[in-house]
Design a protein around this nucleic acid. Structure first.
Length: 444
DNA sequence: TTTTGAGTTGTTCGA
DNA sequence: GTCGAACAACTCAAA
C-alpha cells in the first residue's frame, strides 16, 4: 500500500514525530509538500518570502535524496490521493486557525477516495490546550501560563525515521523553481548550526542585547521555527539555566502561549480578542498605508524597520513593536492591515505570534499593553539604536548624519539634504488622539 | 470567600 | 539632567 506524508510547517526529518509514525507504518510513503500552506496563498507572498520557502524545500529535498514532490495546493494533494489510491495521508497536527481549518477541509475531501488523514504530534514542546488553570480553563495572562508550562516535560527529541520506505517523487505541474533560492541559507542542518552558534556566542548576552536593533543579539531561529526546520523541544533540550538561557526559554514559551490562545480563540487570527476594540474609531488611507509599508513615514526608526522587512524579509523584534505601535497608535489603523503586510513579507511568519503580537501592541490582546503605553519612535530609536547604525544601514538618505543625529534629521540644518521625507504626522498630537479614541470605548 | 498585589517590551510631567 | 508619580481595566494566584 502507498500512503503520503504531507509536509506543511514541519520541513525537517529529525525529531519529527508525525514523519516517524508514517515511515514506521509499513506502507510505502510518498513525500509531498504543498505551497499554499504557510499562511496566504503562495502567489500572494512577497518574492523574498517565496524564495525563502523554496530554499527550505530545496534543503528538505536534498536531505530526502530528491524524494520530495512539491504541489501547489492541498487540492492537488486530494487529486493525487484519488488517482493513486492512497491509503492514508499523515500530517503534523496544526493548531492555528488557518491550519486546522485546512486539515479539516482536506480530511473531508479525502473521504471521496476513502483516504484517511492521520494527525501526528505537532511542532510545540507542549501542545496547545495542554496547559490549563486548576479549574480547567485556559490562561489569558502570560506569566501564570509560563509558570505551569515550564513544569511540563516536553520529552526528549525522537530519532530520525527510516527513509527506506520513501518513494521516488512523482511528476508535478507546479514548478516550485527551487533554483531561485540559490544562495539563501535555510534548512534543518542550517537551523541546527544556527542554534549552536547562538548557544556558543550570543546566549549569555541575550538578556541585555536582544533588544538592540543595531546588534545581532537575537537567536535568528524564528525562520527555522516558522518553517518547522527545528522542533522547539530540540531547542529546549539544549538550554541550561544561565540568565540568557532563561530569558530565551521565556521567548520560546511566548510562541507556545500565543499558539495556546489561538487554539482556544481561533477567530482571533483576524478578530479582536477584546471585542470592545472593534467599536473604536479607526482611519484608513491607501497612500498613508503605502508610506508605512515602504518606509517613508519620516520617522527614522520606523522607516528603517519597514525597509529592513522589504530588503531582508525579516525585522528585529524590538523594531516590530515600534512600527506596529506607529501604525496603530500614530496612524490609527486597525492592526489587521499591519498583520497582513507582515504575513506577506516576513519569512518567519507565524499566524498565532503575528496576530497576537499585533493585538498586544494594539492593546486588544491578551495581557495587553496598558492603553497609555504608546511608543515614542524617536525615543525608542535613541534607546535601542544609540549610535544610529541601524537607521543608517537601511536609510541611505540619512547617511550624512553622524551618530544618534540620524534619529532626528529635523534637528540638523542639512538633515533633509539627501531627500529623506518629512514626518507625515506629529507624534505628540497623534498620541493624544489615540488616547482620546481609547477613552471613548472605555467601559463606564 | 474576599482581598490584595502583580502583571514582557513606556512616556510624560512636574518637582 | 534625574527622579517618582501617574496614567485603566482586567486576570490570576496567593494570602
Amino acid at each position: 500500500m502507498v500512503s503520503v506524508f504531507w509536509f506543511r510547517r514541519d520541513l525537517r526529518i529529525k525529531d519529527h514525530p508525525a514523519l516517524f509514525q508514517a515511515l514506521a507504518s509499513g506502507d510505502e510513503i510518498l513525500l509531498v509538500a504543498t505551497a499554499d500552506t504557510l499562511g496566504a496563498r503562495f502567489s500572494e507572498l512577497s518574492t523574498i518570502r517565496q524564495n525563502s520557502l523554496r530554499a527550505s524545500w530545496r534543503e528538505l529535498k536534498k536531505s530526502l535524496s530528491g524524494k520530495l514532490t512539491i504541489l501547489e495546493s492541498p487540492k492537488d494533494l486530494v487529486a493525487l490521493a484519488q488517482s493513486m489510491g492512497i491509503r492514508s495521508v499523515y500530517v503534523s497536527s496544526a493548531f492555528d486557525s488557518q491550519g486546522f481549518k485546512e486539515l479539516a477541509a482536506i480530511e473531508r475531501d479525502l473521504q471521496s477516495s476513502e483516504t484517511k488523514l492521520i494527525r501526528g504530534e505537532g511542532n510545540y514542546a507542549v501542545s496547545p490546550g495542554r496547559v490549563r488553570k486548576s479549574d480547567g480553563t485556559p490562561y489569558r495572562v502570560y506569566t501564570p501560563f509560563f509558570n505551569e508550562w515550564v513544569k511540563l516535560d516536553p520529552g526528549t527529541p525522537i530519532p530520525e525515521g527510516n527513509l527506506s520506505a520513501a518513494m521516488p517523487e512523482v511528476e508535478s505541474s507546479f514548478n516550485a523553481r527551487l533554483e531561485l533560492s540559490v544562495g539563501i541559507l535555510a534548512g534543518e542542518e542550517y537551523a541546527l548550526k544556527t542554534l549552536e552558534r547562538f548557544l556558543d556566542s550570543r546566549v549569555d548576552a541575550y538578556a541585555d542585547m536582544r533588544n538592540r536593533a543595531d546588534v545581532g543579539g537575537t537567536s535568528h531561529l524564528s525562520h527555522a521555527l516558522s518553517h518547522g526546520e527545528i522542533h522547539p523541544r530540540t531547542i529546549l533540550s539544549r538550554l541550561g539555566n544561565g540568565s540568557g538561557e532563561s530569558v530565551f526559554r521565556k521567548e520560546i514559551a511566548w510562541r507556545e502561549f500565543y499558539a495556546d490562545v489561538m487554539w482556544h480563540n481561533p477567530e482571533t487570527l483576524t478578530d479582536y480578542l477584546n471585542p470592545k476594540f472593534a467599536e473604536m474609531k479607526y482611519d484608513f488611507d491607501e497612500q498613508i498605508f503605502a508610506k508605512w509599508c515602504s518606509g517613508q513615514t519620516g520617522y527614522p526608526m520606523v522607516d528603517a524597520g519597514m525597509r529592513q522587512l522589504l530588503q531582508d524579509g525579516w525585522m528585529h523584534n524590538r523594531v516590530r513593536m515600534i512600527v506596529a505601535s506607529f501604525l496603530v497608535k500614530d496612524l490609527h489603523f486597525e492592526w489587521q492591515h499591519g498583520a497582513k503586510w507582515f504575513e506577506q513579507n516576513l519569512t518567519d511568519f507565524d499566524p498565532a505570534s503575528n496576530s497576537h503580537g499585533w493585538q498586544w501592541t494594539a492593546g486588544c490582546g491578551t495581557d495587553a499593553s496598558p492603553y497609555y503605553r504608546v511608543f515614542n519612535p524617536v525615543m525608542q530609536g535613541l534607546k535601542f539604536d544609540p549610535n544610529g547604525d541601524y537607521v543608517r544601514k537601511y536609510i541611505p538618505e540619512l547617511s550624512h548624519l553622524t551618530g544618534a543625529n540620524a534619529h532626528e534629521p529635523w534637528e540638523d540644518p542639512h538633515g533633509y539634504s539627501k531627500g529623506y521625507p518629512k514626518r507625515i504626522v506629529d507624534h505628540a498630537e497623534e498620541r493624544n488622539e489615540s488616547l482620546r479614541r481609547l477613552e471613548a470605548i472605555k467601559t463606564a
